[in-house]
Each structure stands twice: as C-alpha cells, then as structure tokens.
C-alpha cells in the first residue's frame, strides 16, 4: 500500500487524505517534502538557536496536516512554503493560503498542457497559440525563454552570457513566463 501511494501525484494524495481520511497518504505527502522542509528551515534554526528542531518540526507537521484538511491546495510546493513561512514567522497565527492570480493562470496553462499531451489536435492547437503568444512577447523576454527552454542552456550558461547572477536570471525567467501566460490567457479569451 505504501509503495503504491508513493507513486501517486501530490494532487491524488491530497484528495485521498481529504476524501478517504487516509492518514497514510498524508504521511507519504509529508515524507515527499520532508527534506525540502528541513532545508528551508535550517537557516532559521541557525539564526535562532533557541528553536528546538524536536519541537519545531512536529509543530510544523501538525500545522500542515490541519491546513491540508481545510484549504484548497493547487500546488503542494507553494502551499508548503507558505505554511512554513507563516509558522516560522508567528507560530500562534494561522495565515490562510490563497494562490495569486498569476499562480492560477500558470496552473490553468499547466493543466491544458497536461491534457494536450495525449491529444495531438489539442497539442497542435496549443503549440500554435503559444507561438503566437511568444511572437507578441518583448524581444528580451522571448530571447531568454527560448535560450533556456529550447536551446537548453543552464543557469550557469545564462549567467555567463548575460552577466547577471543566478537569482536575477531566475527572476527574469519567471517574469517572462508570467508575461507569456498572461498573453496566452488573453488570447484564449479572444479565441
């Protein structure tokens, strides 16, 4: 059972936890992200030595499991980051997680892409639309996107060619993607 659960996607695990009240699925989900949780919590533990990891992590897990039952979660990684930040900033206060507009646009396009992967007609349509959206992007943004995704340049290559640091490269990529997503969504509204 446990082996089967590990192969499920985040979405399925979350829905299992909710609908079937399956604690096992919840455990698998937490297990999947445990190392990342530890990694992002480490700097705070270093900064504040009074924090005891033996207390912090169980508390964080409790918060996560409580939130899992009540909140609508589109992307597990973003939800976890949000909860972890909220927990570390103020342990008493529970800040609900709402995905931003951009995140929802992103999610929508990701779902469309996922569906198109099995349907060639949809796939061709999607490619045409994305090409159209790309043509309308500013030159700079289009260039960085094409270099990164189609020419498969690494972060290191891009930092070298552009003269930015890795953070800046990532921010630029993100911004370009957001613009592209917006263009695509607006396009699809016109249809």
């Amino acid at each position: 059972m446990h082996q089967q659960l590990t192969s499920l996607s985040d979405k399925e695990l979350i829905s299992r936890t909710r609908k079937l009240k399956d604690r096992e699925a919840e455990g698998v989900l937490m297990d999947r992200y445990s190392h990342l949780l530890v990694a992002i919590t480490l700097p705070q533990l270093h900064k504040n030595p009074s924090l005891d990891p033996n207390v912090i992590f169980p508390g964080l897990l409790q918060r996560l499991s409580a939130s899992l039952r009540t909140q609508s979660i589109y992307k597990a990684n973003e939800w976890m980051l949000h909860i972890q930040r909220g927990f570390m900033a103020k342990q008493e206060k529970i800040v609900p997680f709402y995905p931003s507009r951009e995140v929802r646009d992103f999610l929508h396009i990701e779902n469309v892409v996922e569906k198109a992967s099995t349907n060639t007609i949809d796939r061709q349509d999607l490619i045409v639309r994305l090409e159209q959206a790309l043509q309308r992007l500013p030159e700079e943004d289009r260039e960085i996107l094409l270099e990164f995704y189609i020419e498969q340049k690494t972060f290191a290559d891009l930092t070298a060619s552009k003269g930015w640091n890795r953070d800046k490269v990532r921010q630029q990529l993100k911004a370009a993607k957001n613009k592209l997503a917006k263009l695509y969504i607006n396009q699809s509204h016109v249809k």
């Binding site: 992200y33 597990a76 396009i109 892409v113 996922e114 796939r123 189609i150």
Partner: peptide, 14 residues
C-alpha cells in the same frame, strides 16, 4: 523546436 515550446509550461515534480 515548436514542440519544445510546450516545455515552458510543463509541470515538473519537486
């Protein structure tokens, strides 16, 4: 190259 455009929005696991 056109096919690779889709990669921009394909979801990848953590």
């Amino acid at each position: 190259n056109n096919d690779k455009v889709i990669k921009i929005f394909s979801g990848i696991r953590c």
